[in-house]
Simulated assay, not measured.
Amino acid sequence: MEDKQWYVVNTYAGHENRVKENLIRRVETMGIEDSLFRILVAEEKEIEYKNGKKVEKMRNLFPGYLFVEMIMTDEAWYVVRNTPGVTGFIGSSGGGAKPFPVSPEEIESILRRMGMSDQKLVVNFQVGDTVKILSGPFAGIEGTVDSMNDDAQTAMVLTILFGRETPTEISYTDLEAI
Rank of each mutant, 00 (worst) to 15 (best):
P84N: 10
M30D: 14
K120C: 08
R59Q: 12
M72K: 04
V79W: 09
F62H: 04
Q119P: 00
I110N: 04
W77M: 09
I39D: 03
L134S: 06
V79T: 04
V55D: 11
I39H: 03
I110D: 04
V127A: 08
V122L: 13
G128M: 12
P99C: 05
K120L: 14
M30S: 15
T130N: 12
K120F: 11
M114T: 05
V127N: 07
G128F: 14
I133V: 10
K54W: 05
K53A: 09
V80Q: 06
P101F: 01
E28F: 05
E33N: 15
T83A: 08
V55L: 12
I47M: 14
K53V: 09
R38C: 08
K57A: 07
I110V: 09
V122S: 15
I107S: 01
F62E: 06
D118S: 12
K57G: 10
R59V: 12
I107G: 00
Y65M: 15
F100Y: 09
T87N: 07
V68D: 03
M114A: 07
E105S: 10
L40K: 08
G85I: 00
R113S: 10
I107Q: 03
Q126Y: 07
G115C: 05
K45I: 12
K53Q: 15
V55M: 14
Y78E: 13
G64H: 01
G91F: 00
I71D: 11
P84C: 07
S109E: 13
S103G: 10
E106Q: 13
V123K: 15
L66F: 02
V122F: 08
K132L: 13
S35T: 10
T83K: 02
V123F: 04
I107L: 09
K98I: 15
D34A: 10
F89L: 06
E46H: 10
E56L: 07
T87W: 04
W77C: 10
P101R: 00
R38T: 11
S35V: 06
V68Q: 02
G52F: 03
L40P: 00
A76G: 07
E28Y: 08
V102P: 01
M70Y: 01
